[in-house]
Amino acid sequence: MSEHAKLDFKQLVEQYYKPLYRFAYSLAKNEHEASDLTQQTFTIYAQKGDSLRDASKIKSWLFTTLYREFLRLRRRAANVTPQENEILEIEAPNVEPGVANTLDGHTAVEALQQVDEAYRAPLTLFYLKDLSYKEIAATLDIPIGTVMSRLSRGKVQLKKCLLQRSPS
């Protein structure tokens, strides 16, 4: 039995189920689907976790698995490949403190949903703060430079979305 198999399943659930659920909810914007994705992630871990030999990589593995499950379900639902749109505006608009201070979780997820799909996952993982940008790159299987540019561009879109939501 590998070292990893000896890790406490309950401890893993305790430590990661909330950030995983939040990641799933931000992707799916649906409580039911987010719960399913989180359960599916731990189901796969229960089946395949024994093959993981580096305990330090479990966190990234869990986020990767959840993201792959999300993409798999999306592909099944609609045969659409996410496209990364070109953004001409690079400078992020200023978001007034009043706008930001009225943010709650659901408003944040609503805003993330308006961001291009290619930016949504890296942005969400960034704001959940569980993974460094290098770990985000590994989780999403994209180069580090791509993560940085997607975060930069994604933040521009996110701030624009929040400004558009602002009544003023």
Partner: peptide
Amino acid sequence: FDSTFSKALESIEPPTDLKDKLLALE
């Protein structure tokens, strides 16, 4: 801005029964 947005995301709570469902997968 990052701090405010992170706090907003972290305020999302999973359904109360989710943890028990996950533990049952052990």
